[in-house]
Amino acid sequence: MTWTIVIGTVLALATILGGALYHQWRLNERLRTQLDAAAVDLENLQQACSRLAPAGVVQRLVTDGGEPETGTAAEHKVVTAMFVDLVGYTAMSERLEPTVLVRVLNGYYERMSDAIHEHRGQVGSFVGDGIVAYFGALQPNPWQCDDAVRAALAMRAAIREYNAELKREGLPQIAVGIGIDRGPGVAGLVGSRERRQYAFIGRAVNLAARLQALSRIHQVDILVTEAVRVQLNMGFALTPMPATPVKGLAEAVIAYAVIRERSVEREPAVG
């Protein structure tokens, strides 16, 4: 009888212990799976972030938690800045239903962003109907001016195609003004503790915005500064515009309208 009680107690204890160990093992496995999944998510997020900010900045954000004192050290860089704006947006927004307007705007943003990315540029921000883009900000790019102007020409072609689409749907045509300047500045994460973005701060961004506004006065779609012109390949056909005063600058700005890129020979002569 005593033995039966002892054996029963031992078995009961062994069952409870076994159950507890099994439960703990299951818990450990679940935690490990969750930890692994979180690590993979973090890794994917880090890789995705590398497309939005330089790897060094992302790395510092991960290791330092993005505290302003250590996590956002700014870098001095020479960058080509582009400012794109939709001509006649206010009038269009008054004429179109909000849902249609959003659809037209999304189509415009998508096409412009594609042209920028295809030419090694990076969209810095969308400002209303405007787009700020940088070339050579994320990674060094010695061909940044050629790339920016080629992106602008690709935007011109994309707008032409998009207009044909809009016309078929009976929607108003759109046009853009593009300003491009190049110069030194500071690149880094800017913003409040709650919301930050990778941005380039420099005179080039302001001048690109002013140039975009000048494009309406000169009745052209793409304008570049002298700083960009001297860096450009001779294959680009440019037309000088009359010097024009702009807000915030003591001297009148000389700008050049981009006409086209002269085509090069198509057939290879290798072998």
Binding site: W143, Q231, L232, N233, V264, E265, E267, A269, V270, G271
Partner: peptide, 25 residues
């Protein structure tokens, strides 16, 4: 080197220079 293009280059060289440039990214 400044523009991955030059009149002295033949068409094949231009083509391959542009390709070499693409492989950096």
């Amino acid at each position: 080197l400044a523009h991955v293009d030059d009149p002295e280059l033949d068409a094949g060289e231009r083509l391959l220079l542009r390709f070499a440039r693409e492989t950096i990214w």
